[in-house]
Design a protein around this nucleic acid. Sequence first.
DNA 1: CGAGAGTTTGACCGTTTTCAATGCATGTGG
DNA 2: CCACATGCATTGAAAACGGTCAAACTCTCG
Lengths: 245, 245
Amino acid sequence: MRTPASGAIADDGDALRFCSTCAFSSACLSQGYDKSALAELHCLVEHIGPFRPGERIFAEGDPFNAIAAVRAGTVKTSVVDADGREQVHGFFLPGEVIGLGAIHAERYPCNAVALDTVMLCRFSFPMMATLAQRMPGLQGQLFRLLSQDIGKAALMAGDHSADERLAAFLVSLSRRWGERGFSPRRFTLAMARADIGNYLRLASETVSRVLRRLQDDGILAVHGRDVEILDEDRLRALARTVLRD
Amino acid sequence: MRTPASGAIADDGDALRFCSTCAFSSACLSQGYDKSALAELHCLVEHIGPFRPGERIFAEGDPFNAIAAVRAGTVKTSVVDADGREQVHGFFLPGEVIGLGAIHAERYPCNAVALDTVMLCRFSFPMMATLAQRMPGLQGQLFRLLSQDIGKAALMAGDHSADERLAAFLVSLSRRWGERGFSPRRFTLAMARADIGNYLRLASETVSRVLRRLQDDGILAVHGRDVEILDEDRLRALARTVLRD
DNA sequence: CGAGAGTTTGACCGTTTTCAATGCATGTGG
DNA sequence: CCACATGCATTGAAAACGGTCAAACTCTCG
């Protein structure tokens, strides 16, 4: 991370590689800002973790003070409804930001748990907002991140068949892993079938069945949680109505 | 609007009454700011409309330059998928803000149409962001608005029965009209059954049937688009799992 | 090797959709 | 003023998709 004034980040081996794919990269790595502002941004980053699989990162109702970028691993966010049923809101890969929904009420609106071993970059939000007053680029980046999340939530809200939603889910994961330098062809699902189903509003049995069908059709190869995309075109074709591109 | 420097707003008869229920009220009406900043905020507000029922306000893909608060009427936002099917994203009542999802890509991600006669307060977003650099309260208000919209989208994304979703929809409208000084008991739906169904992922026929059932149970009185809530407790009970409160 | 969680598969069932027809306003032109 | 068209809402009957229940299977981990 380009010799920041603070040593807190420089001593991290893969900092630069991670940071270049992080949602804050343009803010953190920007060349254009005055040195002192950039140093301040780096100062308010705190590396936390590792969180173990199943470990809670924050809980619904916790007072909000920070957003965090996922550094490694996968985070699941969810809420629990009046009847005690879980409702999965999303999965966050390295470089993606959690906690943005908490700004409004100054409380986290959902639970966040680590699905595997998770590392985070924690940013104090009040400090970040103050800094954004002096860094127009940082303010813009925050506006964009928030705006982007509005659209993300709307994506899976649509009315589509089980096949279409699951295909869209896999295409989305494939792209996101690909953008981060991992293979978009082969990846491992960090979450259980039940979590996927819950997120997509399907029974876990339906997830199994659709996965089987896609495998029988030669579109996927599935071994437990390892997925290989064999026919990207047909998978995209299925996902088309959901992802709209 | 408290004798602003610009005459553009002062000449509007119900400005104060509207503004006090608008999402920007704390920013527009705030006492604490220095006068010049407040005057500048008022300068970048532009009153537009009226839009006629069915008239388009912005279209998906249009270059983004402004967000807008609904001043009067109801706005529907929607996208059209690859197969040409409409997908309703939301309905916006007076005081609510449209266009927030456009910041990210600098293009509107959806279509917005007037459902009845609509008036808007248009805010140039670039100018607003610049002003927010000097007005921490305005920056915070924008962050909160954006953050709030993330949660809104997640609400209707859940997996619930037709009765629960429709009940939640009605409770939500009731609250929102109530917060704006209208009756939370009786109100008129600005949108067609097909739009409600599309928004809730139900066939319009199902909307009719559920409405009928709620009426037969003495929970509602429905006459075309006029709705009267007869048993708020039971309606809320139905909506409980969706709205989680 | 056994325990237990997670996954897969099958059979059946129920809610919601689809298709189709009818009803009900509103508006227009003859 | 009436006949008719049009758009929206309602209602009924049948079909489908996905859910639920139950059992077998697989994998990992102590």
